[in-house]
Design a protein around this nucleic acid. Structure first.
Length: 350
DNA sequence: AATACGGGGCC
DNA sequence: GGCCCAGTATT
């Protein structure tokens, strides 16, 4: 038996039941695939159900506004996925007459869809013969063939893509693609793979040379940079002052308290002497509300402190990105984790 | 070709 | 603390 038929029989016995399987609806497949990019299934599944419930069809999705989508995406991370989905949904209305395409060459034109997602949608929805290449597939193939080309290099992507498409079961591309990803996730895991019960024990080059732990090879990531945020809670008549982030940085277009960023940690005495602070809050009374909060991102460490401003003067709205929100409208704003976590504890404060 | 983009789970 | 997760867009 060849690689693909062994894999597919393993999948028939051991494959997972997942909510977005057993459909050929490209909209539903798309929803699940974007949500699951760089995201664990356990983390993404509640979001999948929530989105499908709020937007049963691609038309519903296209008619939503970006803020509403970001709010539903809140907490999932990589928020450009939600903004790109919004663009893609509009593209489908204008360029595809409102009908979600299933052809690889059409699907890959949509914003937010790259080679992996195009192959997934095309193969799952219409059995088109395109091999998926995700973290699971990279790992399985690098071990099986003991390939030491870095998987995050250009050469690696090309090499693994060619092998993946050769191995693909051209008669059952959809099933094969699901199978190799399940196999990577359940058996050929990153840590502690279950080699003792693996159907490919005798064929796997890395296992045979006792070097499973050496694969896949990956180029090192560069160290994260540190950023220090001082957030200011300004409350007036039960309303909170909020700022909208711009779109050229982390957490694009999301909401948070007004803040000052510095390259080093600032004591409260240094903070009140900061020019930006004096400009925004002249003669303010400031009180630190908590210790340092650390938020780890993929390329940055954010260190945040929260301060209460009780005498902001009357010119606090000189920044056009700032506005006051009552609690009802506050609940509609999309916020990043640092913010909505703090807000939970803040609400319980006296 | 390299880097940015979140949040969470595992070791 | 580092790695990884059903990757893509931008620089």
């Amino acid at each position: 038996m060849g690689f693909s038929s062994k894999l597919i029989s393993w999948y028939a016995k051991n494959g997972r039941e997942l909510p977005w399987r057993n459909t050929t609806n490209p909209y539903i497949i798309w929803l699940s695939e974007i949500i699951l990019q760089q995201t664990r299934i356990e983390q993404g599944t509640p979001y999948f159900h929530n989105f499908l419930e709020n937007f049963p069809t691609i038309e519903d999705f296209a008619n939503a506004d970006e803020g509403e989508l970001l709010k539903l995406w809140q907490g999932l991370g990589y928020y450009s996925r939600a903004r790109n989905m919004h663009k893609a949904a509009r593209q489908i209305q204008t360029d595809f007459d409102g009908k979600f395409p299933t052809k690889y060459e059409e699907v890959i034109k949509l914003t937010g869809i790259g080679e992996y997602t195009a192959a997934a949608i095309a193969s799952f929805s219409s059995n088109a013969a395109y091999a998926v290449l995700d973290g699971n597939v990279f790992r399985v193939l690098s071990r099986y063939f003991a390939i030491d080309t870095p998987i995050n290099s250009t050469a690696g992507k090309k090499q693994f893509s060619e092998i993946a498409n050769e191995l693909l079961d051209k008669k059952h591309p959809g099933t094969y693609n699901q199978a190799i990803m399940d196999f990577g996730a359940m058996l050929c895991k990153p840590k502690n793979p279950l080699c003792e019960e693996c159907i490919f024990r005798m064929d796997c080059r890395a296992f045979q040379t006792n070097s499973i732990q050496s694969y896949p090879v990956k180029l090192k990531k560069k160290p994260s940079r540190n950023r220090f945020f001082a957030y200011f809670i300004v409350e007036e008549d039960g309303q909170l002052l909020m700022a909208k982030r711009n779109d050229s940085d982390i957490w694009a277009n999301m909401y948070e308290f007004p803040m000052i960023e510095t390259e080093e940690e600032l004591s409260i005495s240094a903070l009140v002497e900061h020019n930006e602070f004096k400009f925004n809050f002249p003669s303010a009374i400031i009180e630190q509300l908590n210790g340092m909060v650390k938020q780890v991102l993929s390329h940055q460490n954010i260190y945040a402190k929260f301060y209460r401003i009780t005498n902001p003067e009357n010119n606090v709205l000189k920044n056009s990105n700032w506005a006051f929100y009552n609690s009802e409208n506050l609940d509609k704003l999309a916020m990043h984790k640092l913010m909505f976590t703090f807000l939970e504890t803040f609400k319980k404060l006296p």
